[in-house]
């Protein structure tokens, strides 16, 4: 589905990503790990369309991926991805309203009732049916992320991008969220890209793990070379030794 050929991303003189080659099939769940500033979030932005590559190709079904966000690629950020001025229910209905309303985001009559029923069903599946009328600021961090996930899935995108979605949550709540996201991935046959700084999360959740790291270093100009994919591992058949190797590599950051 997605084909990446010799992809580079530079900001001025600073290289962030270099020589990335990969192929992703429909339905894969890829977790992206790496030290902070290694470009994994930048890679996600390229997939999302808010940033464009400097060189190389990023193809979706053989065509260049659209250069601005659209409804086929859902996103959940670590924070700020729900609308604070709308209730939980309206946040989810907004997706339908945007997609169907022509000029304004208003839905009326039958279409409004349908959107409401759809939103209620989706919110039920993420366990938020008891807070339909609450505003986001009244929710806990975990509930807000559930809402963001529900909102991202209303329009049934093919690709779901997750940018450290559980980074700010307590470990106990993270477990619940992992279960939720795995269920939704199975049900909706999504292709998922998830950035995380938690290596365990990366191994537990994905079908495939990418590690981003710099392999070339110039001590005179640390910004001259970008990161690339140093490990591309099908998860589930991982040897203990490789896990430890990557874990050691990331440890200084994970401890921060």
């Amino acid at each position: 589905m997605i084909q990446i050929n010799n992809l580079w991303k530079r900001y001025g003189d600073t290289s962030v990503l270099e020589r990335i080659n990969a192929e992703v099939k429909e339905g894969e769940f890829i977790t992206l790990v790496g030290t902070s500033g290694c470009g994994k979030s930048t890679f996600l932005k390229l997939l999302l369309g808010t940033e464009q590559q400097s060189q190389g190709e990023l193809l979706l079904d053989g065509k260049p991926i659209p250069a601005e966000p659209d409804r086929h690629r859902g996103i959940v950020f670590q924070q700020y991805s729900v609308f604070p001025h709308l209730s939980v229910l309206k946040n989810v209905m907004a997706a339908r309203a945007f997609a169907e309303g022509r000029i304004s985001a208003l839905l009326l009559g039958r279409r409004r009732r349908e959107a409401r029923a759809e939103a209620e069903a989706l919110l039920e599946s993420v366990g938020l049916s008891h807070v339909l009328e609450s505003y986001p600021h009244q929710l806990s961090g975990g509930m807000r992320q559930r809402l963001a996930i529900a909102q991202a899935l209303v329009l049934k995108p093919r690709i779901l991008l997750l940018d450290e979605p559980f980074g700010a949550l307590d470990p106990g709540i993270r477990g619940d969220m992992h279960e939720l996201i795995l269920n939704l991935w199975h049900q909706q046959q999504l292709t998922v890209f998830m950035v995380t700084h938690d290596l365990k999360e990366g191994f537990y959740l994905g079908t495939r793990l990418w590690v981003f790291d710099k392999i070339r270093h110039d001590p005179q100009a640390p910004q001259a070379f970008g990161a690339t994919i140093t490990y591309d591992i099908p998860v589930g058949r991982t040897e203990r030794k490789i896990y430890e190797e990557i874990d050691n590599q990331l440890r200084p950051v994970a401890a921060v």
Binding site: P69, R71, A94
Partner: peptide
């Protein structure tokens, strides 16, 4: 993030 989110919802 909210503007990006709205765009991914087809706005």
């Amino acid at each position: 993030e909210q503007l990006v989110k709205a765009q991914t919802l087809g706005a």
